[in-house]
Write a protein that binds this DNA or RNA. Structure first.
Lengths: 344, 344
DNA sequence: TTGAAAGCGATACCAT
DNA sequence: ATGGTATCGCTTTCAA
């Protein structure tokens, strides 16, 4: 088969066919500046006829800004991450942008990703993993590229953050476990946890401390499902005299922990109560039916984009932290209590 | 906080500082053409000093090609998809490219995505979901942009395809189930399945037909976990007189089916045998321990990129289908049989 | 409203 | 080896 070498159609070609100048073509197609109705019609006809497509590279070069939005993510195989990225992609495309995605395997790479994004003159950057060095965030800002983090610590004055309400999540969990009659509490997290995990732990700690209750911290030595599974191997987890409520930093840990306990012959909610974070699809599966704190990924995504948009217009604004509400999803590992009296 | 308006550093600035021309800067930094060692050193020093970063938009415009690779994906929340995309991102970045990812919610959108990719002058396109219209693939080819599909039907003469060996997978499944003593067979697939699912079903059918064995087709009315779960609700699935072997088109269906059967009080491998496809992380979880056909996502990703690379050099080559080996992972829903004599 | 022209920033060819 | 220059394709003043 012969490959035809049909040359690219440029605005010049459209102009020629429409009998106008390239300037008019540009204005007509981008709805910028004024064009007479008849010129516009002729341009549109010509463009359609030739199958003209704007060259985004040239457009971006000229405008000093591409229709690209950079997204940094790590371990996309984590179901929560992929759910979040999925929501981000939808939101990004719905607003007419394209996602430039980089996967990092190491926190250090975040900075390199941002640099790369600058080189593409992206319209904004969304960081879902890793903590970019303040200096590199500033490089972005100097190029008028807004940066927003999702579910991470606010670092420095240049990056906005959209964050699920970890406090509220921890409160909901504490409240539910107490209503369910738990008197002994465990907080399970990976020892090398991300900031979000630690924040949830602290909030859980505080929520209980307010009631004068202490909790036990269980550190998983691995991340993810395996970490939770192994953490459940310890034999001194469930005291005889009190029902134990376990709160996990994320869904994978929770699933692993549940399976680990079952292997020990213990199950929820009979032998203990269990609440996770994230509400990933698997937590709803029949084998788990995990009570969990739901994160509204679509809201996180939407607010992140709003944030980029606003900051592009007002670069001088102080960095903000935008909270997103979470919800408690009642499932079997800590069923809904009928009593409505809990005050926590 | 004041936002400094530091102007962008261009090759011109580097040239000035290094006391050479822009041309030399370009050559030195891209290792193209010849530059004296001392010039090179001065350029590199100047570039570092100024923090110079190539503008990829300008570079791409000039070279008619960006360091971008377009990836089309649907339903990233499916664990197999996110695993695959994860592997693709790694491979793409390892080769010095950046991934431009578009999510489609409808097969129709594939074409639009490809068009968008052309506008960014990507170096290649990888389609993991949807079937692009041949006409649009040709548009890409005319722009010298190679297109490769992963796990899909070869459509038309312009698109290469990298594909897990569905035949082999089905054979492995059939062989395992027979060795395990199954005499009755079920093929479970979503009724609106993708091409890959259907291909697996046909291959399973053939593998059994060769031995004169018929199979029963079970059509899930929904996709994913729920589809499998609901499919298991039918009460006539397991005949009394023979052990039944079930093969599922993908991992989600298999997990759902297993949970559905358990709800009926039936479990694998005691009441039936079950094999899935994909080997997603969840199939290894303790609650499932699904015997499954493993897809080597990293190999799929690597071959896809090889493909793009080769085709960029030889656009006239006939479209190829590149098979990737699959492996049977023995787990509990159809344990490894010790006998070594089975010939299928 | 329209068109001419000056960039945007980098690259590659072609003399030197 | 080096530098001048045309070029990639589009956008946006600025005059007319």
């Amino acid at each position: 088969m012969k490959i035809s070498n049909k040359p690219t159609v440029t605005a010049q070609d459209v102009a020629r066919l429409a009998g106008v100048s390239r300037a008019v073509v540009s204005r007509a197609l981008s709805n910028n500046g004024s064009v007479s109705p008849q010129s516009r019609a002729r341009v549109e006809a010509a463009a359609r006829q030739l199958g003209y497509q704007v060259n985004f590279l040239a457009q971006g070069l000229n405008r000093q800004r591409s229709q690209l939005i950079g997204v940094v993510v790590a371990r996309l195989t984590d179901p929560f991450r992929s759910t979040l990225v999925n929501a981000l992609l939808s939101a990004i495309q719905a607003r007419g942008y394209q996602a430039l995605v980089t996967e990092i395997t190491d926190e250090q790479e975040t900075g390199l990703s941002l640099r790369r994004f600058v080189q593409f003159r992206v319209s904004g950057v969304i960081v879902t993993s890793g903590q970019p060095p303040e200096s590199i965030v500033r490089e972005c800002i100097e190029h008028h590229i807004p940066v927003v983090g999702i579910n991470r610590a606010q670092s420095g004055p240049s990056m906005d953050v959209v964050c699920s309400d970890n406090q509220a999540g921890a409160m909901l969990a504490a409240s539910q476990l107490r209503k369910a009659g738990c008197q002994s509490f465990i907080w399970l997290n990976y020892q090398g946890s991300t900031w979000a995990g630690r924040a949830r732990g602290e909030a859980f700690h505080h929520a209980l401390a307010e009631k004068g209750i202490a909790l036990r911290e269980l550190q998983a030595t691995q991340d993810g499902y395996e970490g939770g599974f192994l953490a459940a191997q310890r034999h001194d987890l469930l005291p005889r005299q009190a029902t134990t409520g376990v709160f996990c930093a994320n869904a994978l840990l929770a699933c692993g922990f549940l399976d680990g306990m079952r292997q020990q012959g213990k199950n929820a909610p009979t032998d203990f109560h269990l609440i996770g974070f994230d509400n990933t699809p698997q937590t709803a599966w029949e084998s788990y039916q995990l009570t969990t704190i739901h994160q509204q990924v679509d809201v996180l995504a939407a607010k992140a984009l709003d944030c980029l948009h606003e900051r592009a217009k007002h670069p001088e604004l102080a960095a903000r932290v935008i909270p997103v509400a979470v919800e408690l999803v009642h499932r079997r590992t800590s069923p809904c209590t009928t009593e409505q009296t809990g005050t926590l």
